[in-house]
Design a protein around this nucleic acid. Structure first.
Length: 816
DNA sequence: CATGGTGGCATTTTT
DNA sequence: TGCCACCATG
């Protein structure tokens, strides 16, 4: 039982960490409000935690406190984050505190929680529990077909408008029927129609998109009391990180699960709300207290991360926002170094500066991994990458092109998808003529028509068409053969067979395209990855489904897109991190480069005419600044090339730039100019006085490559030695990501009594006794041996032929 | 009817 | 750079 704080004596927070045999004090080093948050008992609590105020620490220590001092079972606790990266971080920290036990806590992202619930309950909504998850590309494919069916002119109604519409609807829990009711003009009427058709197509393909993972999870909880009941029984404590970024579905999801206990702990910072475009509703945090009466509110304002200089700069930027709760971070730390500014003539010069400055800082003793380069748009990576490669600075890009996004990988995965889900029409469309085998647009159209006429999946419709089309017949024979392979061999071999039997590999090898070789290597990588996913005694199709699930939830934030530099192949490389400002949230680095501080980029030009959007850009800048611990750089370019996103006044084209208004808000005394400012008279605040806006040859001043210009390929092909990483990521990294870290599988077949009873004490267990295990179900005790941490229990579970030997401490058995 | 080549064009942020 | 639409060819 958890009492209120007064019942907790300080000594109770002392505990032994059994795993490591060392004592830890959960409150040590925490300030008063932090301690209060950690010790808070039952009931709702809102922690308003400024950047760097030790939020994650509070969250993890609170979880540890529940488990160590209040005997709460790890499985009764759910911690929800937005990104897998944040989840991993949290799991890591909890493992440090709790050891093995941390594995049993349900730590996951909103989307993977939704997926997990739906994997057990999707049949209730008309899907099978084996449904596939469609990614953006699949989604667009479906939408395209829908538009075709409704003969909607894509020029007049671009595909993306529908994508956004549907996305928004799902974020706000609006079903197609409700959307239709709400439609108020021709346009919205059309949109709701498209939405309806789209949703039906997905259902037919037994597929859900990202939005569905949340919306359908909420639907299932709302409409099926027994499901809701199950999860409410299972979860006693819920914690949500980055609460300011929750949208309506997410809020509802948490709301449903947290009732009636209301042991809900949310942490957030309204100043760091940066997902408005995804429907994040800042009022969720601002009005939390209205929905949860008697909420305890704790503010964390002491910053432990950054120097006072950095903090002041951050505050100067954020305080101009109107929609925010007044607060100010403070630190006991030193004022630290000044913020260094640099202006380059163009993005290449900016990048070169960053690369050389990184080398300088490293020469002074910093590690590459302590350095991050942040930017507003992914497009900015190009110049940065070039310069870093040239300077031989090892780096990782987060969020760019993923290994699993590569065409060749997606193609092979397409076959896997079709094998486990014959209704997956998008997979069918992808692979039916890949590699080309004489099934062109005409034939495909015929299949689609057949499918729509009969209401069957494309694959089934293809059987009809096969009677008169030889190519289609051959394709089906191929699929048939692969289905056989699926039953007779493991995932690794199966992938190998797909590559061979579809002739994908051989055809690739025959191409003279220089990228072909690396693509073949990627496929080999996929094959060996498949091999590592195999599990003894698990059918291949189950392995495939598991594999695909993990891939679809593995996001850019989790996986560096590519490695380069000196020793990319080394086991664990010390690398600089490159990422967007969005991905940087929640992270911290001793040295941070905030690049592209220009009007049009940060703030992004798409936000310039909208004050709400502008405030979000400001928060984005705030997030960027507050990532820095010791050193912060502001960099920008005076001129940005054609496709550097959001170029200049002309909206899209490149052009001359002016300094970001956010940089102007920072006290000039805190800034120190480096580089060009002295050598060329350019200033960060004012640009290049010596050149007019259209003067195009200013680059000669720094471009000493001789002749090559900054647009041309000449320079890149000549100067950059392309060590062309064989694969985007190492096998080890992929493996790590795909191995089930959360070994716990919530299994709805677990008898309900399991959740209602407490674990049996060791001395109460004896041979012959009937017990329940969460994962393995019911069984009989055959033997009990040992004592303390090493006590073992042998149990013959009803569902298994052989008895299992379990460590008592982790088994958490309940007497039936 | 399928295929491969070419030229034009667009690019916020994410699960 | 990467994707798509279009066109000429087999």
């Amino acid at each position: 039982m958890i009492g209120d704080q007064s019942e907790l004596r300080f000594g109770e927070s002392w505990t032994m960490n059994e795993e490591r045999g060392e004592s830890i004090d959960l409150l040590q080093g925490l300030n008063a409000p932090q301690q209060e948050a950690v010790l808070h008992g039952e009931g709702p609590i809102l922690v308003l935690a400024g950047a760097g105020s030790g939020k994650t620490r509070v969250l993890t220590h609170r979880v540890a406190n529940l488990i160590l001092n209040h005997n709460v079972w790890p499985d009764r606790i759910m911690a929800v984050t937005f990104t897998n990266k944040a989840s991993e971080e949290m799991r890591g920290r909890l493992e440090a505190l709790l050891g093995e036990r941390a594995r049993r806590i349900w730590i996951s992202t909103f989307h993977s929680s939704g997926l997990r619930i739906l994997r057990h309950n999707a049949t209730k909504l008309g899907y099978t529990n084996r449904f596939v998850v469609y990614d953006d590309q699949d989604t667009k494919g479906v939408l395209k077909q829908v538009l075709k069916d409704l003969s909607i002119n894509e020029d007049r109604y671009p595909l993306d408008t529908f994508t956004r519409y549907i996305d928004r609807a799902k974020n706000n829990l609006v079903s197609p029927a409700e959307a239709a009711k709400k439609a108020f003009n021709i346009e919205t009427d059309l949109q709701s129609q498209v939405y309806d058709r789209y949703q039906k197509s997905l259902l037919q393909a037994d597929a859900m998109d990202f939005g569905d993972l949340l919306m359908n999870a909420v639907r299932v909880l709302q409409e099926f009391p027994e499901v809701l009941d199950y999860y409410r029984h299972a979860l006693h404590y819920i914690l949500v990180d980055e609460f300011q970024d929750t949208n309506l579905v997410q809020y509802r999801f948490i709301r449903l699960l947290s009732e009636p206990r209301r042991n809900l702990f949310v942490v957030g910072d309204d100043d760091q709300s940066i997902y408005g475009f995804r429907g994040a509703n800042i009022t969720n945090i601002l009005e939390f207290e209205k929905d949860y009466h008697n909420t305890k509110v704790i503010k964390l304002e002491q910053n432990y991360r950054s120097t006072a200089t950095i903090l002041n700069a951050a505050h100067a930027v954020i305080e101009k926002n109107k929609a925010r709760k007044a607060k100010k971070l403070w630190t006991e730390g030193a004022s630290g170094e000044q913020i260094r500014t640099f202006i380059g003539y163009d993005e290449n010069m900016e990048a070169e500066f960053i690369a050389s400055e990184i080398k300088r800082v490293v020469a002074q003793g910093a590690r590459y991994s302590e350095i991050a380069v942040l930017y507003r748009t992914n497009a900015q990576t190009r110049a940065l990458e070039e310069s870093l490669v040239r300077a031989k600075v090892p780096y990782k890009i987060f969020g760019g092109l993923k290994f699993f996004d590569r065409k060749e990988i997606k193609d092979i995965l397409g076959y896997l998808r079709l094998l486990v889900n014959p209704a997956d029409n998008q997979a069918f469309q992808r692979v039916v003529n890949t590699p080309p085998r004489g099934i062109g647009a005409q034939a495909v159209q015929e299949i689609v028509a057949e499918s729509q006429g009969k209401g069957v999946p494309y694959l089934a419709a293809a059987m009809e068409v096969a009677t008169k089309n030889k190519s289609v017949r051959k394709f089906l024979e191929l699929m048939n053969e692969l289905i056989g392979d699926c039953q007779s061999c493991g995932l690794g071999d199966l992938v190998g067979h797909i590559i061979q039997k579809t002739e994908y590999g051989p055809k690739l090898a025959a191409m003279k395209d220089p990228t072909a070789q690396s693509r073949i290597e990627n496929l080999q990588e996929l094959e060996s990855l498949g091999r590592t996913m195999e599990r003894e005694g698990t059918a291949t199709d189950v392995v495939i489904k598991d594999f695909l699930d993990r891939i679809s939830l593995t996001s850019g934030a989790d996986l560096p897109a590519g490695e380069s530099g000196a020793d990319a192949s080394a086991e664990k490389v010390d690398t600089v991190s490159l990422m967007t400002l969005h991905l940087a949230k929640g992270l911290e680095f001793p040295v941070v480069f905030l690049s592209g501080l220009e009007e049009g980029l940060l703030p992004h030009y798409r936000s310039l005419d909208d004050s709400t959007a502008l405030e979000e850009e400001r928060r984005l800048c705030y997030v960027g600044i507050t990532r820095a611990m010791r050193m912060l750089y502001f960099t920008r370019a005076y001129y940005r090339g054609m496709f550097a996103a959001g170029g200049g006044q002309s909206g899209g084209a490149g052009g001359a730039r002016i300094v970001s208004r956010f940089a102007k808000d920072v006290d000039p005394a805190a800034l120190e100019a480096v580089g060009t400012e002295r050598s060329q008279g350019a200033t960060f605040m004012n640009g290049y006085p010596r050149f007019s806006f259209d003067d195009d040859d200013g680059d000669r001043h720094y471009d000493d490559d001789g002749g090559a210009n900054r647009w041309g390929k000449k320079r890149s092909s000549r100067v950059i030695s392309p060590p062309e990483p064989k694969t985007a990521v190492s096998l080890d990294q992929l493996k790590k990501l795909l191995t089930p870290a959360d070994a716990i599988q919530k299994n709805p077949t677990t008898p309900k009594e399991y959740f209602e009873k407490s674990p049996a004490a060791l001395e109460h267990l004896a041979s012959g006794m009937r017990v329940i295990h969460q994962t393995f179900g019911r069984g009989s005790v055959e033997d009990v041996s040992g004592s303390g941490n090493s006590a073992m229990v042998v149990i013959k579970f009803d569902a298994f032929d052989e008895s299992k030997k379990l460590v008592y401490r982790f088994a958490k058995l309940v007497i039936e």
